[in-house]
């Protein structure tokens, strides 16, 4: 179970990343966040965003058109 859940389904770019960033800011290092989006660019956007940060992408998957990410704060 992630420490915080961000439902960004139905939101358009750049909102999923912006919402995820806000939620991540509220966490302590080591805590995790789960994000769900339906924005089609997400499968590229989230890994690109995390790669440039000191956070860690634990999981990225698509289920029935919903993109699901688990991110650990660094």
């Amino acid at each position: 179970m992630a420490d915080v859940f961000v439902d960004a389904k139905g939101l358009a770019c750049p909102m999923p990343i912006v919402k995820a960033k806000k939620a991540l800011d509220s966490l302590q290092p080591g805590q995790t966040m789960e994000v769900h989006t339906t924005e089609k660019g997400s499968m590229n956007d989230f890994p690109a965003w995390i790669k440039r940060s000191n956070h860690e992408l634990i999981e990225a998957k698509e289920e029935n058109g919903v993109f699901k990410f688990i991110i650990k704060k660094g």
């Binding site: 770019c13 750049p14 990343i17 912006v18 995820a20 960033k21 965003w49 440039r52 940060s53």
Partner: peptide
């Protein structure tokens, strides 16, 4: 503004 918001989210 989309780019600005994205960049801000990038830290």
């Amino acid at each position: 503004f989309i780019i600005a918001n994205g960049a801000a989210a990038y830290g």
